[in-house]
């Protein structure tokens, strides 16, 4: 495969053809914040946190392929400001109360807020009504914590091959649903494999019985499953 030469933050690097900017940056030690991206799953370019400046235009690093001669900036003042605004918008959208969250201390959203220097949220808290569904024997879903990244939807569809999860509605009324918007425990298609829990970046999907700060998502395991499946052919 042909190599592409490009510049990231002023440094020349070479990348494989067809690789995303995100992969190329990580290979060369540059980290770019992400939320809807998860290694092993397809990319949707939805959270917009990985936007980078490509020759003056903003592009999502996860879905933009490298090209010869690209001049990429990953951490300009403008990008940092936009990323912080995006994370603030998420915190304002639903009830992300870290103090009483099962994933506190192990949460990608919480960590993003820290790394982007978010000391407060400048927007109105929308405070929507969100349910907590603990009808499943082992797992629960707290919609207050959901950021609609669709990692669970993709893990279920692409890795488990079931597609129990999808999204209903649109805009801020969108909600993750199981089967026909039934309680998770009644969703016949669910195999209770728990891959959605692995994929979830926040405290939205959790093991029942876990209390504050107890829920750790081993999201890296999704990539391991996918990679070993690929190697085995």
């Amino acid at each position: 495969m042909a190599a592409k030469t490009l510049k990231i933050n002023g440094t020349m690097i070479s990348a494989r053809e067809g690789e995303s900017i995100l992969e190329a940056a990580r290979d060369s030690g540059v980290s770019i914040p992400t939320l809807c991206h998860l290694d092993g799953l397809s990319d949707v370019g939805a959270c917009r946190l990985c936007i980078v400046d490509v020759g003056g235009r903003l592009r999502p690093a996860c879905t933009t392929a490298v090209a010869e001669g690209m001049d990429i900036q990953t951490n300009t003042e403008q990008l940092r400001a936009y990323r912080r605004q995006i994370v603030e918008l998420l915190f304002a959208e639903r009830g992300h109360v870290c103090a009483v969250c099962v994933a506190s201390g192990h949460c990608e959203l919480q960590n993003l807020a820290v790394s982007l220097g978010m000391d407060h949220v400048r927007y109105d808290y929308l405070a929507p009504t969100c349910t907590v569904d603990i009808s499943h024997q082992r797992f629960g879903i707290d919609h207050n914590r959901c950021v609609l990244c669709t990692r669970c939807v993709r893990a279920c569809d692409e890795v488990e091959g079931v597609h129990t999860w999808d999204i209903s509605g649109r805009g801020t009324s969108a909600r993750i649903i199981s089967d026909l918007n039934q309680p998770w425990g009644d969703a016949e298609s669910c195999t209770s494999c728990g891959k959605c829990l692995l994929a979830c970046p926040t405290g939205a999907l959790f093991q029942r019985g876990s209390t504050v700060a107890e829920m750790e998502h081993a999201s890296g395991r999704i990539a391991v499953i996918v990679e070993s499946r690929r190697v085995r052919g």
Binding site: V44, G45, A46, C47, R48, Q85, I86, L89, L90, A92, E93, Y123, D124, L126, V147, L148, I167, G169, R170, G171, T172, S173, A174
Partner: peptide, 14 residues
């Protein structure tokens, strides 16, 4: 707003 990307989904509401 379809609700897919955050800036449009929540930004328009704000």
């Amino acid at each position: 707003s379809c609700g897919k990307c955050i800036p449009c989904r929540v930004g328009t509401v704000q």
